[in-house]
Simulated assay, not measured.
Amino acid sequence: MMRVESLFSSFPSIYTERLVLRQMAAADAEDIYEFYSDPLVTKHLDWNGPTSIEDTRMLINSWNHAFEERRIIPWGISLNSQKPMPIIGTVILMPIRGHFEDDHRFPLTVGYDLKSEFWSKGIMSEAMQAVINYSKTHISPHRIQAEVYPENVASLKLLKKLGFQEEGVLRQYLMHEVTKTFLDVVLLALLIN
């Protein structure tokens, strides 16, 4: 396992057969805003995505700032076959509380989004497997968990394929940022050690 200092000394890009998981920059704002503007993408989120390209730049900046503070690792997903490499999705890994240097007392949580035209092509499965492998090698968490809406069948299927087990429904656990309604989520977890 890497020490936290070396883990955060530079952004940890990950390369797979088809993908590059990389740090997002202000130049990616248009791509990210485009896929968050798709109601199919935001249908299963607790927010409606950024409201403008400028808001997206601020979101990217906040993610990068949180990385510098060792609170999250926010990867942008690109296809390595496309030049330049537009962002087509995200995977964000973070401790449920605190920072990565909190000696793994807290589970990690993972969230992800993908441009709808790339659904059902194995892209998110490949990205998530890469993040899980990275976590095992460099972070060694005891537990990684995810929260999914019960009606998000594709996401539930993906996580179970990756070895996550369903642990139950957290009733009215999240409040939607825009509608202010409380939402149920299914909690799934992968035990590493």
Rank of each mutant, 00 (worst) to 15 (best):
V4G: 02
S6M: 11
S9Y: 09
P12G: 01
Q23H: 14
M24R: 09
A25L: 14
A26I: 09
Y36C: 08
Y36A: 06
S37I: 01
D38M: 04
P39M: 00
P39N: 06
P39S: 04
L40C: 08
T42D: 10
H44V: 12
L45M: 14
W47M: 07
N48R: 07
G49L: 10
P50T: 11
E54A: 14
D55R: 06
D55I: 08
L59G: 12
I60Q: 08
S62I: 06
H65D: 11
A66N: 13
A66Y: 11
E69I: 01
R70E: 15
R71T: 08
P74W: 03
W75A: 04
I77S: 05
S78M: 03
S78Y: 00
L79D: 03
N80M: 08
S81L: 05
Q82L: 14
K83A: 14
K83C: 12
K83L: 15
P84H: 04
I87S: 13
I87F: 14
I87A: 14
I88G: 10
T90W: 07
P95D: 10
H99P: 02
D102C: 05
D103L: 13
D103G: 10
H104C: 11
R105L: 13
R105N: 12
P107R: 05
T109R: 09
V110G: 01
L114M: 00
K115E: 12
E117V: 13
F118I: 00
F118Q: 00
I123A: 11
A127L: 04
A127Y: 01
M128Y: 04
Q129S: 15
V131A: 02
N133C: 03
Y134T: 08
S135N: 04
T137H: 05
H138V: 07
I139F: 03
S140G: 08
P141M: 04
I144N: 02
I144D: 02
Q145C: 09
A146I: 09
Y149W: 00
P150H: 00
V153R: 08
K157G: 07
L162S: 00
Q165W: 02
E167Q: 09
G168Y: 02
M175I: 14
E177Y: 13
T181A: 12
D184C: 04
V186D: 04
L191P: 06
